[in-house]
Write a protein that binds this DNA or RNA. Structure first.
Lengths: 197, 197
DNA sequence: CAGGAAAGCTAATGGCATTAGCCAAGCGCG
DNA sequence: CGCGCTTGGCTAATGCCATTAGCTTTCCTG
Protein backbone atom coordinates (compact mmCIF):
# COMPACT_ATOMS: atom_id res chain seq x y z
CA UNK A 1 0.00 0.00 0.00
CA UNK A 2 1.97 2.98 -1.25
CA UNK A 3 1.34 6.32 0.40
CA UNK A 4 -0.83 8.85 -1.27
CA UNK A 5 1.61 11.62 -0.45
CA UNK A 6 -0.97 14.13 0.68
CA UNK A 7 -0.36 17.27 2.63
CA UNK A 8 -2.45 20.19 3.77
CA UNK A 9 -2.14 22.04 0.46
CA UNK A 10 -2.98 18.97 -1.58
CA UNK A 11 -6.12 18.36 0.46
CA UNK A 12 -7.23 21.95 0.03
CA UNK A 13 -6.57 21.69 -3.70
CA UNK A 14 -8.72 18.59 -3.93
CA UNK A 15 -11.43 20.33 -1.93
CA UNK A 16 -11.33 23.20 -4.40
CA UNK A 17 -11.75 20.71 -7.21
CA UNK A 18 -14.81 19.31 -5.47
CA UNK A 19 -16.20 22.82 -5.06
CA UNK A 20 -15.53 23.66 -8.71
CA UNK A 21 -17.19 20.50 -9.95
CA UNK A 22 -20.24 21.09 -7.81
CA UNK A 23 -21.65 24.10 -9.64
CA UNK A 24 -23.23 26.80 -7.53
CA UNK A 25 -23.90 24.38 -4.69
CA UNK A 26 -20.36 23.07 -4.77
CA UNK A 27 -19.35 24.72 -1.54
CA UNK A 28 -22.47 23.67 0.32
CA UNK A 29 -21.96 20.13 -0.91
CA UNK A 30 -18.31 20.01 0.06
CA UNK A 31 -17.86 16.87 2.09
CA UNK A 32 -14.93 14.99 3.56
CA UNK A 33 -16.16 11.87 1.81
CA UNK A 34 -15.94 13.55 -1.56
CA UNK A 35 -12.44 14.82 -0.90
CA UNK A 36 -11.27 11.47 0.43
CA UNK A 37 -12.70 9.71 -2.62
CA UNK A 38 -10.79 12.06 -4.90
CA UNK A 39 -7.62 11.54 -2.91
CA UNK A 40 -8.04 7.78 -3.05
CA UNK A 41 -7.86 7.62 0.71
CA UNK A 42 -10.12 6.71 3.63
CA UNK A 43 -12.00 9.58 5.22
CA UNK A 44 -10.23 9.59 8.62
CA UNK A 45 -6.88 9.90 6.89
CA UNK A 46 -7.76 13.47 6.01
CA UNK A 47 -7.60 14.38 9.67
CA UNK A 48 -3.84 13.97 9.46
CA UNK A 49 -3.80 17.13 7.33
CA UNK A 50 -6.79 19.26 8.27
CA UNK A 51 -8.60 19.67 11.56
CA UNK A 52 -12.01 18.71 10.25
CA UNK A 53 -14.69 19.83 7.84
CA UNK A 54 -15.16 23.35 9.24
CA UNK A 55 -11.41 23.95 9.10
CA UNK A 56 -11.25 22.70 5.52
CA UNK A 57 -14.11 25.00 4.56
CA UNK A 58 -12.23 27.89 6.13
CA UNK A 59 -9.10 27.11 4.14
CA UNK A 60 -11.09 26.87 0.94
CA UNK A 61 -12.82 30.14 1.68
CA UNK A 62 -9.51 31.82 2.33
CA UNK A 63 -8.22 30.82 -1.10
CA UNK A 64 -11.39 32.09 -2.73
CA UNK A 65 -11.45 35.42 -0.93
CA UNK A 66 -7.79 36.01 -1.72
CA UNK A 67 -8.49 35.23 -5.35
CA UNK A 68 -11.20 37.87 -5.39
CA UNK A 69 -9.00 40.36 -3.55
CA UNK A 70 -6.16 39.87 -6.02
CA UNK A 71 -8.47 40.23 -8.99
CA UNK A 72 -9.69 43.56 -7.63
CA UNK A 73 -6.15 44.66 -6.83
CA UNK A 74 -5.22 44.05 -10.45
CA UNK A 75 -8.05 46.34 -11.55
CA UNK A 76 -6.95 48.96 -9.08
CA UNK A 77 -3.44 48.99 -10.45
CA UNK A 78 -4.49 49.42 -14.04
CA UNK A 79 -7.34 51.91 -13.97
CA UNK A 80 -9.14 52.41 -17.24
CA UNK A 81 -8.94 55.72 -19.04
CA UNK A 82 -11.81 57.50 -17.30
CA UNK A 83 -11.95 57.66 -13.49
CA UNK A 84 -15.31 55.88 -13.29
CA UNK A 85 -13.80 53.01 -15.22
CA UNK A 86 -12.34 51.49 -12.10
CA UNK A 87 -15.61 50.83 -10.32
CA UNK A 88 -17.18 49.61 -13.54
CA UNK A 89 -14.30 47.21 -14.11
CA UNK A 90 -14.43 45.95 -10.55
CA UNK A 91 -18.12 45.21 -10.78
CA UNK A 92 -17.54 43.20 -13.93
CA UNK A 93 -14.57 41.46 -12.38
CA UNK A 94 -16.66 40.24 -9.48
CA UNK A 95 -19.43 39.00 -11.72
CA UNK A 96 -17.05 37.29 -14.12
CA UNK A 97 -15.26 35.52 -11.32
CA UNK A 98 -18.55 34.37 -9.84
CA UNK A 99 -19.75 33.05 -13.18
CA UNK A 100 -16.51 31.28 -13.87
CA UNK A 101 -16.53 29.55 -10.47
CA UNK A 102 -19.93 29.72 -8.82
CA UNK A 103 -18.94 27.34 -6.06
CA UNK A 104 -16.02 29.52 -5.06
CA UNK A 105 -18.22 32.58 -4.95
CA UNK A 106 -20.49 30.87 -2.46
CA UNK A 107 -17.45 30.07 -0.34
CA UNK A 108 -16.70 33.77 -0.10
CA UNK A 109 -20.10 34.56 1.34
CA UNK A 110 -20.59 33.86 4.84
CA UNK A 111 -22.19 34.61 7.98
CA UNK A 112 -19.77 31.77 8.46
CA UNK A 113 -16.59 33.77 8.79
CA UNK A 114 -17.93 36.89 10.39
CA UNK A 115 -18.26 35.34 13.81
CA UNK A 116 -15.73 32.53 13.57
CA UNK A 117 -12.84 33.26 15.92
CA UNK A 118 -10.50 31.13 13.82
CA UNK A 119 -11.17 32.96 10.58
CA UNK A 120 -9.07 36.05 11.08
CA UNK A 121 -7.23 35.50 7.81
CA UNK A 122 -10.49 35.22 5.91
CA UNK A 123 -11.81 38.38 7.49
CA UNK A 124 -8.60 40.23 6.70
CA UNK A 125 -8.78 39.26 3.04
CA UNK A 126 -12.43 40.26 3.02
CA UNK A 127 -11.53 43.65 4.44
CA UNK A 128 -9.00 44.09 1.65
CA UNK A 129 -11.73 43.43 -0.89
CA UNK A 130 -13.86 46.14 0.67
CA UNK A 131 -10.88 48.49 0.69
CA UNK A 132 -10.44 48.13 -3.04
CA UNK A 133 -14.07 48.92 -3.63
CA UNK A 134 -13.78 51.85 -1.30
CA UNK A 135 -10.87 53.24 -3.27
CA UNK A 136 -12.83 52.96 -6.50
CA UNK A 137 -15.77 54.74 -4.93
CA UNK A 138 -13.50 57.47 -3.64
CA UNK A 139 -12.07 57.91 -7.13
CA UNK A 140 -15.58 58.73 -8.25
CA UNK A 141 -15.55 61.75 -6.00
CA UNK A 142 -17.96 60.54 -3.37
CA UNK A 143 -17.42 62.70 -0.29
CA UNK A 144 -15.90 61.00 2.74
CA UNK A 145 -19.00 61.15 4.90
CA UNK A 146 -20.95 59.23 2.26
CA UNK A 147 -18.16 56.78 1.53
CA UNK A 148 -19.46 54.02 3.76
CA UNK A 149 -22.99 54.28 2.45
CA UNK A 150 -21.72 54.24 -1.10
CA UNK A 151 -19.52 51.20 -0.63
CA UNK A 152 -22.39 49.36 1.00
CA UNK A 153 -24.63 50.22 -1.92
CA UNK A 154 -22.07 48.93 -4.39
CA UNK A 155 -21.56 45.72 -2.50
CA UNK A 156 -25.29 45.19 -2.11
CA UNK A 157 -26.06 45.81 -5.75
CA UNK A 158 -23.29 43.69 -7.21
CA UNK A 159 -23.56 40.88 -4.72
CA UNK A 160 -27.33 40.82 -4.96
CA UNK A 161 -27.20 40.62 -8.72
CA UNK A 162 -24.64 37.85 -8.74
CA UNK A 163 -26.50 35.81 -6.16
CA UNK A 164 -29.78 36.11 -8.00
CA UNK A 165 -28.11 35.25 -11.28
CA UNK A 166 -26.30 32.21 -9.93
CA UNK A 167 -29.44 30.95 -8.24
CA UNK A 168 -31.25 31.21 -11.54
CA UNK A 169 -33.47 33.76 -9.87
CA UNK A 170 -33.95 35.77 -13.07
CA UNK A 171 -36.68 33.82 -14.78
CA UNK A 172 -35.96 34.02 -18.49
CA UNK A 173 -32.39 34.69 -19.55
CA UNK A 174 -33.55 37.96 -21.18
CA UNK A 175 -30.10 39.33 -21.76
CA UNK A 176 -28.76 39.26 -18.25
CA UNK A 177 -25.60 40.98 -19.44
CA UNK A 178 -27.59 44.03 -20.46
CA UNK A 179 -29.30 44.07 -17.08
CA UNK A 180 -25.96 44.01 -15.33
CA UNK A 181 -24.69 46.87 -17.45
CA UNK A 182 -27.84 48.79 -16.61
CA UNK A 183 -27.23 48.22 -12.93
CA UNK A 184 -23.58 49.20 -13.05
CA UNK A 185 -24.23 52.31 -15.11
CA UNK A 186 -26.94 53.37 -12.69
CA UNK A 187 -24.58 52.81 -9.82
CA UNK A 188 -21.72 54.78 -11.34
CA UNK A 189 -23.80 57.71 -12.47
CA UNK A 190 -25.74 57.72 -9.22
CA UNK A 191 -22.55 57.88 -7.19
CA UNK A 192 -21.09 60.62 -9.32
CA UNK A 193 -24.07 62.79 -8.55
CA UNK A 194 -23.53 62.38 -4.82
CA UNK A 195 -20.65 64.80 -5.11
CA UNK A 196 -23.00 67.75 -4.90
CA UNK A 197 -24.34 66.78 -1.47
CA UNK B 1 -50.21 7.23 25.39
CA UNK B 2 -52.54 9.95 24.20
CA UNK B 3 -52.17 11.14 20.64
CA UNK B 4 -50.40 14.34 19.87
CA UNK B 5 -53.09 15.37 17.42
CA UNK B 6 -50.75 16.61 14.73
CA UNK B 7 -51.65 17.32 11.16
CA UNK B 8 -49.86 18.79 8.17
CA UNK B 9 -50.56 22.38 9.18
CA UNK B 10 -49.45 21.84 12.75
CA UNK B 11 -46.16 20.32 11.60
CA UNK B 12 -45.51 23.25 9.28
CA UNK B 13 -46.34 25.66 12.11
CA UNK B 14 -43.84 23.94 14.37
CA UNK B 15 -41.26 24.04 11.60
CA UNK B 16 -41.82 27.78 11.28
CA UNK B 17 -41.25 28.11 14.99
CA UNK B 18 -37.95 26.27 14.62
CA UNK B 19 -36.98 28.56 11.77
CA UNK B 20 -37.93 31.66 13.74
CA UNK B 21 -35.98 30.58 16.77
CA UNK B 22 -32.89 29.82 14.72
CA UNK B 23 -31.95 33.36 13.78
CA UNK B 24 -30.60 33.90 10.30
CA UNK B 25 -29.50 30.28 10.01
CA UNK B 26 -32.87 29.02 11.18
CA UNK B 27 -33.90 27.72 7.79
CA UNK B 28 -30.59 26.03 7.10
CA UNK B 29 -30.74 24.42 10.52
CA UNK B 30 -34.29 23.21 10.10
CA UNK B 31 -34.26 19.55 10.93
CA UNK B 32 -36.85 16.85 11.40
CA UNK B 33 -35.34 16.12 14.79
CA UNK B 34 -35.94 19.65 15.96
CA UNK B 35 -39.54 19.63 14.76
CA UNK B 36 -40.22 16.25 16.29
CA UNK B 37 -38.76 17.38 19.61
CA UNK B 38 -41.06 20.39 19.61
CA UNK B 39 -44.03 18.24 18.75
CA UNK B 40 -43.19 15.80 21.52
CA UNK B 41 -43.13 12.98 19.02
CA UNK B 42 -40.62 10.55 17.52
CA UNK B 43 -39.03 11.59 14.26
CA UNK B 44 -40.60 8.97 11.98
CA UNK B 45 -44.05 10.01 13.12
CA UNK B 46 -43.66 13.20 11.14
CA UNK B 47 -43.72 11.17 7.94
CA UNK B 48 -47.41 10.59 8.57
CA UNK B 49 -47.94 14.29 7.80
CA UNK B 50 -45.19 15.44 5.48
CA UNK B 51 -43.29 13.59 2.80
CA UNK B 52 -39.85 14.27 4.25
CA UNK B 53 -37.45 17.09 4.97
CA UNK B 54 -37.34 18.57 1.47
CA UNK B 55 -41.13 18.64 1.33
CA UNK B 56 -41.33 20.31 4.72
CA UNK B 57 -38.83 22.93 3.60
CA UNK B 58 -40.94 23.58 0.54
CA UNK B 59 -44.06 24.09 2.63
CA UNK B 60 -42.22 26.44 4.94
CA UNK B 61 -40.86 28.37 1.99
CA UNK B 62 -44.32 28.67 0.51
CA UNK B 63 -45.65 30.29 3.68
CA UNK B 64 -42.73 32.71 3.75
CA UNK B 65 -42.98 33.73 0.11
CA UNK B 66 -46.71 34.25 0.44
CA UNK B 67 -46.11 36.40 3.47
CA UNK B 68 -43.74 38.57 1.48
CA UNK B 69 -46.11 38.71 -1.47
CA UNK B 70 -48.99 39.80 0.75
CA UNK B 71 -46.89 42.44 2.44
CA UNK B 72 -46.01 43.90 -0.95
CA UNK B 73 -49.61 43.67 -2.11
CA UNK B 74 -50.63 45.74 0.90
CA UNK B 75 -48.15 48.44 -0.11
CA UNK B 76 -49.43 48.33 -3.66
CA UNK B 77 -53.00 48.91 -2.57
CA UNK B 78 -52.19 51.92 -0.40
CA UNK B 79 -49.64 53.92 -2.38
CA UNK B 80 -48.05 56.81 -0.57
CA UNK B 81 -48.76 60.35 -1.68
CA UNK B 82 -46.01 60.65 -4.31
CA UNK B 83 -45.71 58.06 -7.06
CA UNK B 84 -42.14 57.10 -6.09
CA UNK B 85 -43.41 56.33 -2.61
CA UNK B 86 -44.52 52.87 -3.61
CA UNK B 87 -41.11 51.54 -4.56
CA UNK B 88 -39.57 53.16 -1.53
CA UNK B 89 -42.18 51.59 0.74
CA UNK B 90 -41.72 48.19 -0.86
CA UNK B 91 -38.00 48.27 -0.33
CA UNK B 92 -38.48 49.07 3.32
CA UNK B 93 -41.15 46.43 3.65
CA UNK B 94 -38.79 43.76 2.38
CA UNK B 95 -36.02 44.82 4.69
CA UNK B 96 -38.29 45.09 7.71
CA UNK B 97 -39.72 41.66 7.11
CA UNK B 98 -36.25 40.20 6.74
CA UNK B 99 -35.07 41.81 9.94
CA UNK B 100 -38.13 40.71 11.86
CA UNK B 101 -37.73 37.09 10.72
CA UNK B 102 -34.29 36.43 9.28
CA UNK B 103 -34.85 32.70 9.11
CA UNK B 104 -37.95 33.13 6.99
CA UNK B 105 -36.13 35.43 4.62
CA UNK B 106 -33.55 32.73 3.99
CA UNK B 107 -36.36 30.32 3.22
CA UNK B 108 -37.53 32.60 0.44
CA UNK B 109 -34.17 32.50 -1.31
CA UNK B 110 -33.47 29.58 -3.28
CA UNK B 111 -31.78 28.00 -6.04
CA UNK B 112 -33.84 25.42 -4.24
CA UNK B 113 -37.22 26.21 -5.74
CA UNK B 114 -36.15 27.37 -9.14
CA UNK B 115 -35.50 23.90 -10.45
CA UNK B 116 -37.67 21.84 -8.14
CA UNK B 117 -40.50 20.32 -10.17
CA UNK B 118 -42.68 20.09 -7.04
CA UNK B 119 -42.38 23.74 -6.14
CA UNK B 120 -44.82 25.28 -8.60
CA UNK B 121 -46.73 27.02 -5.84
CA UNK B 122 -43.57 28.56 -4.45
CA UNK B 123 -42.56 29.76 -7.90
CA UNK B 124 -45.99 31.23 -8.49
CA UNK B 125 -45.89 33.20 -5.25
CA UNK B 126 -42.38 34.33 -6.14
CA UNK B 127 -43.59 35.54 -9.51
CA UNK B 128 -46.30 37.56 -7.76
CA UNK B 129 -43.63 39.22 -5.65
CA UNK B 130 -41.77 40.22 -8.78
CA UNK B 131 -44.99 41.49 -10.32
CA UNK B 132 -45.58 43.85 -7.45
CA UNK B 133 -42.08 45.24 -7.77
CA UNK B 134 -42.59 45.57 -11.48
CA UNK B 135 -45.73 47.60 -10.95
CA UNK B 136 -43.93 49.94 -8.61
CA UNK B 137 -41.14 50.38 -11.13
CA UNK B 138 -43.64 51.09 -13.87
CA UNK B 139 -45.29 53.72 -11.68
CA UNK B 140 -41.94 55.48 -11.65
CA UNK B 141 -42.22 55.97 -15.38
CA UNK B 142 -39.56 53.52 -16.47
CA UNK B 143 -40.19 52.74 -20.14
CA UNK B 144 -41.36 49.22 -20.94
CA UNK B 145 -38.19 48.14 -22.73
CA UNK B 146 -36.17 48.92 -19.60
CA UNK B 147 -38.68 47.43 -17.19
CA UNK B 148 -36.96 44.08 -16.84
CA UNK B 149 -33.56 45.60 -16.29
CA UNK B 150 -34.98 47.99 -13.72
CA UNK B 151 -36.79 45.29 -11.76
CA UNK B 152 -33.66 43.19 -11.73
CA UNK B 153 -31.68 46.13 -10.43
CA UNK B 154 -34.18 46.72 -7.65
CA UNK B 155 -34.22 43.09 -6.64
CA UNK B 156 -30.45 42.87 -6.72
CA UNK B 157 -29.93 46.00 -4.66
CA UNK B 158 -32.50 45.28 -1.99
CA UNK B 159 -31.78 41.59 -1.75
CA UNK B 160 -28.06 42.16 -1.69
CA UNK B 161 -28.34 44.69 1.06
CA UNK B 162 -30.57 42.51 3.18
CA UNK B 163 -28.35 39.47 2.75
CA UNK B 164 -25.23 41.38 3.67
CA UNK B 165 -26.94 42.95 6.66
CA UNK B 166 -28.31 39.66 7.97
CA UNK B 167 -24.96 37.96 7.54
CA UNK B 168 -23.37 40.69 9.58
CA UNK B 169 -21.38 41.53 6.49
CA UNK B 170 -21.31 45.24 7.24
CA UNK B 171 -18.44 45.44 9.71
CA UNK B 172 -19.37 48.13 12.17
CA UNK B 173 -23.03 48.97 12.61
CA UNK B 174 -22.33 52.52 11.35
CA UNK B 175 -25.95 53.47 10.94
CA UNK B 176 -27.10 50.76 8.60
CA UNK B 177 -30.50 52.43 8.36
CA UNK B 178 -28.92 55.48 6.78
CA UNK B 179 -27.07 53.29 4.32
CA UNK B 180 -30.29 51.62 3.31
CA UNK B 181 -31.98 54.95 2.80
CA UNK B 182 -29.05 56.05 0.69
CA UNK B 183 -29.41 52.93 -1.45
CA UNK B 184 -33.15 53.28 -1.89
CA UNK B 185 -32.95 56.97 -2.71
CA UNK B 186 -30.28 56.28 -5.28
CA UNK B 187 -32.42 53.57 -6.77
CA UNK B 188 -35.55 55.68 -6.98
CA UNK B 189 -33.88 58.74 -8.38
CA UNK B 190 -31.81 56.66 -10.76
CA UNK B 191 -34.89 54.95 -12.13
CA UNK B 192 -36.77 58.19 -12.53
CA UNK B 193 -34.02 59.46 -14.75
CA UNK B 194 -34.33 56.49 -17.05
CA UNK B 195 -37.50 58.02 -18.43
CA UNK B 196 -35.50 60.16 -20.79
CA UNK B 197 -33.91 57.21 -22.57
C1' DC C 1 20.35 -0.57 9.34
C1' DA C 2 17.57 0.68 13.45
C1' DG C 3 14.06 3.49 15.20
C1' DG C 4 10.67 6.83 15.50
C1' DA C 5 7.63 10.29 13.36
C1' DA C 6 4.16 10.62 10.15
C1' DA C 7 0.55 8.79 7.12
C1' DG C 8 -2.45 5.54 6.33
C1' DC C 9 -5.91 2.02 7.99
C1' DT C 10 -10.07 -0.25 10.54
C1' DA C 11 -13.41 -0.04 14.13
C1' DA C 12 -16.56 2.39 17.00
C1' DT C 13 -19.75 6.32 18.17
C1' DG C 14 -23.23 9.58 17.42
C1' DG C 15 -26.34 12.68 14.65
C1' DC C 16 -29.29 12.84 10.95
C1' DA C 17 -33.06 11.10 7.33
C1' DT C 18 -35.60 7.54 5.66
C1' DT C 19 -38.14 2.90 5.31
C1' DA C 20 -40.56 -1.08 7.16
C1' DG C 21 -43.51 -3.03 9.99
C1' DC C 22 -45.96 -3.23 14.56
C1' DC C 23 -49.61 -1.54 17.99
C1' DA C 24 -53.15 1.07 19.92
C1' DA C 25 -56.57 5.04 19.82
C1' DG C 26 -60.69 6.51 18.42
C1' DC C 27 -64.35 6.90 15.15
C1' DG C 28 -68.31 4.91 12.52
C1' DC C 29 -71.50 1.56 11.78
C1' DG C 30 -74.25 -2.27 12.82
C1' DC D 1 -72.76 -1.32 23.07
C1' DG D 2 -69.19 -3.23 20.88
C1' DC D 3 -66.54 -4.56 16.43
C1' DG D 4 -63.32 -3.23 13.30
C1' DC D 5 -60.84 -0.36 10.40
C1' DT D 6 -58.41 3.79 9.54
C1' DT D 7 -54.89 6.37 11.14
C1' DG D 8 -51.28 8.29 14.10
C1' DG D 9 -47.93 7.02 16.81
C1' DC D 10 -43.95 3.74 18.05
C1' DT D 11 -39.51 0.82 17.68
C1' DA D 12 -36.09 -1.27 14.84
C1' DA D 13 -33.07 -1.23 11.06
C1' DT D 14 -30.32 0.98 7.24
C1' DG D 15 -27.36 4.27 5.33
C1' DC D 16 -24.63 8.44 4.99
C1' DC D 17 -21.80 11.68 7.19
C1' DA D 18 -18.19 13.51 10.71
C1' DT D 19 -15.31 12.55 14.30
C1' DT D 20 -12.25 9.89 17.72
C1' DA D 21 -9.28 6.12 19.17
C1' DG D 22 -5.91 3.12 18.46
C1' DC D 23 -3.20 0.06 15.37
C1' DT D 24 0.16 -0.66 11.45
C1' DT D 25 3.27 0.42 8.03
C1' DT D 26 6.15 3.33 5.48
C1' DC D 27 10.06 5.92 4.96
C1' DC D 28 13.30 9.37 6.39
C1' DT D 29 17.07 10.11 9.65
C1' DG D 30 20.91 9.34 12.19
Amino acid sequence: MPRAGLDRAAVVALALAVVDDGGSTGFADLTLSAVAARAGVAVPSLYKHVAGLPALRREVALVCVEELRDALAAVDVAPAAEPDGTLRAMAHTVRDLARRSPGRYQAVQGSLWVHDPDADAVRAAGAAVVDHLSAAVAALGVPAERRIDAVRAVRAAVHGFVVLELDGGFGMPDDVDASFDFLVEGLVSGLRRVVVT
